[in-house]
Design a protein around this nucleic acid. Sequence first.
DNA 1: TGAAGTTGTCTATTATCATAGACAACTTCA
DNA 2: TGAAGTTGTCTATGATAATAGACAACTTCA
Lengths: 242, 242
Amino acid sequence: MSMQHTASSGVALWRLVADGIERGIADGRFAAGEKLPGEVEIAETYRVNRHTVRRALAALAERGLVRAERGSGTYVEAQRLAYPLRSRTRFSEIVGAGGREPRGQLIEASEDVATREVARELRLKVGAPLVRIEAIRLADRTPICVSTTWLSAELFPGAGAVFAATRSMTKLLAHYGVRDYRRGATRITAGIVDATDATRLDLPLGRPILVVDATDLDLDGKPLVTKHSRFAAERVEFLVDS
Amino acid sequence: MSMQHTASSGVALWRLVADGIERGIADGRFAAGEKLPGEVEIAETYRVNRHTVRRALAALAERGLVRAERGSGTYVEAQRLAYPLRSRTRFSEIVGAGGREPRGQLIEASEDVATREVARELRLKVGAPLVRIEAIRLADRTPICVSTTWLSAELFPGAGAVFAATRSMTKLLAHYGVRDYRRGATRITAGIVDATDATRLDLPLGRPILVVDATDLDLDGKPLVTKHSRFAAERVEFLVDS
DNA sequence: TGAAGTTGTCTATTATCATAGACAACTTCA
DNA sequence: TGAAGTTGTCTATGATAATAGACAACTTCA
């Protein structure tokens, strides 16, 4: 008795089960920290063998969405980092508010010159000298996003070294006398992670990312830094007040 | 030497190839009637065995999207029915313009009472008597859509029998003295075909459908009939003038 | 303590997926 | 007519996918 599955649709059964469970997590039917139904019960609801369910759960576990505890059950790990998009969002505060430990890490700091896009954002001339900082931000050792940040090399000389020491953009700006700043226009798109970012974010290839382009302004509205950030979509959710 | 494919994503390789080709047909890279690249060439572009390509093409052929001719090549069958959404669209004219033979077929006509939604559309009271007509429309024996149509039983007594005889909504209305009518507001959404519609549309389960809710008005703007239609998404494309 | 329920692991079987090579049958075109 | 290019069919092999059953290891709770 067998038959792989009814439709032979070219999509593996375990994938359908995994997608179904993930949808359940995403839409809140299974809350974070909560116990999933037992493997046998899931198998019954999907009318599928228990081993098929295990395959699905293994895929979800590998992505960090669930965690199995022998003898007890399988629990929703989810806990997407809620990331409010307001004018004064600070990464460290967001992560800290979730009871997790924020960390920044410098990948590379280098000299660069302004492209047309960056020049427009920072109100500089094309070709103006810049400091480019490639950094990664983590919550509890889980990479959340990688960012490319540009600052004017004239306004912030040696910014790369300062960031390497402070590991914080807020502290970097404070070092140059910027007391406070706010978020300017923010553009959000989505894409697929490239090989470089995949390694940095510890993501398998082909995963979706959220791409955020934003410029921070001082209180007079003068542009300070502009950023191009790539978030692991499965680890964050952006909250926009309406 | 093997390895099924790199990612083991739970999606069969032939499915990816089939989807790729279908996208090519949908976006016009492969025009209707045109010859596809040879199986060997497709296999090379997707870096896949020729047999895998054949599996993909077989799936597309079964859905009527392509047709293989031995010794010659594989040709795009596609020919989605172009369905302009204007205020005076008549199904028969649309199908006829494509050189195909329009046909309507009554599935069931019954008495019904107005739900809140239908009552609002037809400007009747909730619970008002209706005639409900379940019908299917075909082009050259290919089912295009199934529609549920509601008419006021007071304005159109015995409408079910008239539709069964004429198989045309336009002729039905003419029978009651309606010379001309036009399309009112039209709402379009998409969904997945249910079991009943799948049988009627000769579609495999899980296929996408276009769901159209529309109300036809007479020339004074008085509502005549309201329809809930489900189109086989792969067989039509709606054209909206801008 | 013990029973019930849970996840983890093992063996086994069948069907599907993907690859590989070879050749037949057919069409096109010089 | 013949060569080149195309789809169709056959055999073969190994990796996955899905099912089935059994039992171990562990947790929870009465």
